[in-house]
Amino acid sequence: MSMTAPLAGFSDMAIQSQSGFRTLMNAMARPATILRAPEPLRAPAPMNPVAAMIALTLCDYDTMIWLDHGLMNGEGLTSFLRFHTGAPLAKSQAEADFAFIANPRKMGDIAAFPLGTDAYPDRSATLVLQVEALTNATGVVLSGPGIKDKTRFGAAPLPENFWPMMRANAARYPRGIDVIFCSMTELAAIPRSTHVGEGA
């Protein structure tokens, strides 16, 4: 039998998940700000180390995780997540509390994820997109809560219709999804409250 133990999670759960969360909180509170991600974790491919940190920091048996095709078929990845988080896997996008997407180009419509309701806009999904690069030098112009005046933000690779989808997402406010982008070392967030202006 070739059962191997899953890769290790946090060695000090309380301290490392706090550090990861604090960075996520700052990222969500300051949309498009690119932060160095603490506590990256080696996870089975194709999940990147920052996405793995996010999964172990935020997910548990009270949250449904949805994985895109690549992650779903990652060797040992579902057992890694089940072992460390206990989170059940969502059968469809509509069930997801957290969606992890390794290949954003094939992510489809973000409106397929739970958007919350007018009475409970918090009953919505958070999308974690793995990307190769994050930048504030170019990209769309963003404004809204957490952003002093305006900022620019770009991430790659993304599908062509990504920013139009995010504009539609902002237009549904307060309903909508929130997005966390993560590269191999960094992360940034764009919540539903961010206005997506011209560019990209």
Binding site: S17, F21, L24, M25, M28, A29, T57, L58, C59, D60, D62, T63, P121, D122, S124, T126, G146, Y173, P174, D178, P191, R192, S193
Partner: peptide
């Protein structure tokens, strides 16, 4: 974790 998820939602809305 449960409180942290609520904080992130609160910040987003």
């Amino acid at each position: 974790r449960m409180i942290r998820r609520a904080i992130l939602k609160g910040i987003a809305i």
